[in-house]
Simulated scan of single mutants.
Amino acid sequence: MPAASPAAVAALQRRIWDGRLPLEIRLAATDCTTYDTSEPYLISLPRLAYLSPLLPRLHAFFRSVLVNPEIPSHEAWLSFDGLPLKWHYPVGLLHDLFSGAQPAGLDDASKMESSAVQHSIHAPPQQDIQTVDDGTLPWRLTLHLSAYPAELIFPLDAEGDVLHDAFVNAVKEADFVRNGTAKAAMSLSKQDASTLWRAVLEHDMGVFNTVNAKLLNPPGVSLRHVPIKVYLPVDSQADIPGVVVEEKEETGEDQQPQRQAGSVRVVQGLVPPVSPSRQVTTLGTALNTLLPTVFPSKRNPVLACPVLHGAVVPMSASLEELGRAASYTDGFLHVVVVLLS
């Protein structure tokens, strides 16, 4: 299969950056002087965005009904069905993991590999890369200003440095996976590093790409591995031989697991863009390598399907092309596993 054209890669990236999620955020009853009668905060947020930059606006919106309005906004936290939401996960990834919403294309997952039209980046599905409205939208979250779950999510600071540092560390990690060294990320000028983060906060794809291109195409360096992380729901958490588990997430002690929100296992490995036999590595090949018990076939989604940016991804898609077009802003492909019933 020929490589995707730059125009095709750019078109898919544009569609991903255009993806948004409607949120309905309510104040927790324990932090509200009027209990559960306060008006919700409604917003359409880019799927690639982080949640913590919203906190000052949420604090200002609910200030008149806060039990303790003197608590600063950076000490607030957000939850879904009792699960604290991690600050360093983009909202689109959080939604794919925990909302229980049906991803776009799930009904056609079993047919996807038999459809030559939808095999790769060259001819993406006609359906926009948006979350399917299956009754789970808007995504309903809860804002809390007490009982911060520091054992589950890291505390923030007033200046936003904590989230920024987490993002920078992820960018460096992705750079190291790609090239075997983080030299490209470490060599960014202070202005470039600041521009990259500002582009993420302002959701400016054009400005983001001017800096990100320096990370994706460092002079004299060939791509060694494609940065990818795979997220398994609670139902698929049997021990998997040969797999490095990056982290395991649990709900609080008093919370019962809810759908996929009870526990998540993050699997990561070094996956080259081309095999030793010079075959292009597909997403199916990568998943079969990392999780052979969950993805026993390299071509067909037998037990589970991969979801990225709210949509099922063809197993035959080139991993390198996905990395260039569909990575999150930290440089990783964050692929969520959805079990097939």
Results as ranks from 00 to 15, higher is better:
V132A: 05
A76H: 12
N288K: 14
S194D: 13
L152R: 10
S187N: 11
L12M: 04
L223M: 11
S115H: 12
Q279P: 00
K86A: 10
Q258R: 14
A182L: 01
V211W: 12
P124Q: 05
Q130M: 02
V177Q: 07
S222A: 13
M315V: 02
K298T: 14
L54I: 02
N68W: 01
L27G: 06
L303P: 02
K86E: 11
V312C: 05
E173G: 03
V211T: 13
E70K: 04
D254T: 09
A174L: 06
S189G: 15
T195N: 09
A11V: 01
T210L: 15
P219Q: 12
P103I: 01
G19S: 15
L232A: 14
E151F: 09
G135I: 03
P149Y: 13
A199S: 13
V264H: 11
D235A: 05
T142C: 13
H122Y: 09
V280K: 08
S341Q: 15
T195L: 05
R178S: 14
L137D: 08
S52C: 03
S189L: 08
Q237N: 14
D107T: 05
G220S: 09
P46V: 00
P40H: 06
F295V: 06
R20C: 11
L93C: 04
S275G: 05
A326W: 02
H334T: 02
C32Y: 15
H74P: 02
S187A: 10
D235H: 07
Y231G: 04
D235W: 06
L223N: 11
I71G: 01
M112Q: 08
E70I: 00
D165Q: 15
S73C: 09
P292S: 13
V200C: 08
L145C: 07
P219K: 05
E151I: 02
I240T: 13
S297D: 15
I16S: 11
V200R: 02
P69C: 12
A3G: 03
A184T: 07
T34Y: 14
K229Y: 02
S189C: 06
P56F: 01
T181Q: 12
E70S: 12
P149F: 07
H225T: 04
V65C: 13
E320C: 02
V171P: 04
P90D: 08
A286T: 01
N300T: 15
V67A: 14
